[in-house]
Design a protein around this nucleic acid. Structure first.
Ligand SMILES: [Mn+2]
Ligand SMILES: [Mn+2]
Ligand SMILES: [Zn+2]
Ligand SMILES: [Zn+2]
Lengths: 129, 129
DNA sequence: CGTTTTTTGCAAGTCATTCGCATTTTTGAC
DNA sequence: GTCAAAAATGCGAATGACTTGCAAAAAACG
């Protein structure tokens, strides 16, 4: 584990939410080149120390986000107002996926679920109604 | 509805699965500029005649895909082998989303579910097991 | 240590998508 | 229909996220 790679892993570990490459750069204070950050993230994912997903937000565009690898597969909610991610806990789609496999004869090997809207804080601030 | 826009809409209508801008270009035989295709797709979506989602496939990269607007919200399965999309019918996530709203105090205004793996055909060809 | 292998920084390159702007098309009023 | 005003198109250049080639720097290892 090189210096750059451990700095990147530490950034993911300290973050409360998924980080994009740009977010990691910011977190480590530009202490290494962006190519190094991208390569470190790819390395960490390959080594099973991090996980990632591609997410599109109208305001932030499309980016790949990384989190430190966790025991269970999880999904995230993204707030359209404050742009924070909310951890939704471990995946609850197993039976739905099994249903699709049976219904369509497909073999589901991966999936992604993205929820967007307003987080509790932003919903409260926006409309008390 | 201009000539270019109706050609693009017709392409979406004839397609059995979501099309990327490049897919639309191919379908209409380069009969208009790519900037026009992108603008037409944005127009059609704004007019409620088409819907889109951003999807990432390791082999094809990240692209926005469009389908003709349908009555019900749907999701798609993408085959990692033949790269076709399989229509999974209308969304069955309502109760799960409602559960998340209650559990986390969030307000879910949009969501996307992507499944990947092998379609029935490819699964059959690959491993009879 | 000295050598071999891997990683890093920097610059240039990709790829999907967007933009500026001059040139058509379309639209609406007569 | 005719013509001016508004909107759409083509083309080339610009974006933004990400990747890559290559030479210099760092880690591995005997
Ligand atoms: Mn965002
Ligand atoms: Mn694909
Ligand atoms: Zn929020
Ligand atoms: Zn297939």
């Amino acid at each position: 584990m090189t210096k750059a790679r451990s700095r990147v892993l530490a950034a993911l570990d300290n973050a409360a939410e998924p980080l994009s490459a740009a977010g990691v750069m910011e977190a480590i204070g530009q202490s290494c080149d962006q190519a190094t950050v991208y390569r470190a993230l790819a390395y960490l994912e390959g080594a099973g120390l991090a996980e990632s997903f591609v997410f599109h937000c109208d305001e932030h565009g499309t980016e790949r986000y990384y989190v430190k690898a966790a025991a269970a597969h999880r999904h995230w909610f993204h707030c359209r107002t404050c742009h924070r991610f909310v951890d939704l806990g471990s995946c609850v789609l197993d039976s739905i996926l099994a249903g699709y496999e049976k219904e369509y004869g497909i073999r589901v090997k991966g999936h992604a679920l993205y929820l967007t809207g307003d987080c509790a804080d932003c919903a409260a601030k926006a409309g008390g109604a």
